[in-house]
């Protein structure tokens, strides 16, 4: 009996890592953070194509203020997490990924920058624009997925 329970637990645990089923808790947690994020994006006009044009023409401080203060708050948060060894709500150790430097950081970064200015949105705001009712932005989403797929296809043929 106890062995059965143990087996069941092992099975559950492996299912969790293999399929990582979306739980109701996940829906609530990530859904709420997303909703807050979406509201801020719209209310601070971060999703505005016009604001992005202003930013890249140095005609407004708004976007720089947002990115700058977000980074400062993020830095302090990560520092606090590391210093006090803060765990997740499930008691796991928090893992922060380090992205490596490649030639892609430069070339890809530059290409994305062009796309950011042209579409007037980075990936988060693209979705928020659709939420405001601008359904034509679905074209941007489909193209971004296509661009990602294209990268996967030619990945080994371009410098990194």
């Amino acid at each position: 009996m106890s062995k059965d329970i143990l087996n069941k637990r092992v099975e559950d645990a492996s299912n969790k890592t293999l399929y990582n089923k979306i739980t109701f808790g996940d829906l609530i947690k990530f859904g709420i953070v997303g909703v807050v994020f979406g509201i801020v994006f719209v209310k601070a006009e971060i999703i505005s194509w016009f604001r992005i044009q202003e930013m890249f023409r140095f005609q407004s401080f708004h976007m720089y203020g947002i990115i700058g203060s977000a980074v400062i708050v993020g830095m302090i948060s990560v520092w606090l997490i590391n210093t006090f060894n803060i765990k997740t709500i499930d008691g796991e150790k928090i893992k922060i990924n380090k992205k490596p430097f490649t030639l892609g950081t430069i070339i890809g970064g530059f290409l994305f920058g062009i796309g950011w200015a042209i579409t007037g949105a980075c990936p988060g705001p693209i979705f928020a624009q659709i939420g405001t009712g601008a359904t034509v932005i679905i074209l941007t989403v489909i193209s971004a997925i296509a661009g990602t797929w294209l990268y996967g296809l030619v990945r080994h043929k371009i410098p990194h």
């Binding site: 992205k99 290409l111 579409t119 988060g124 074209l139 193209s143 971004a144 990602t148």
Partner: peptide, 20 residues
């Protein structure tokens, strides 16, 4: 503005391994 821009966003972010 949408299709070319979107392609650049998709390709560029993966090539750079991240976005904003």
């Amino acid at each position: 503005l949408t299709v070319i821009g979107g392609l650049l966003v998709g390709f560029g972010t993966r090539y750079a391994d991240g976005c904003t």
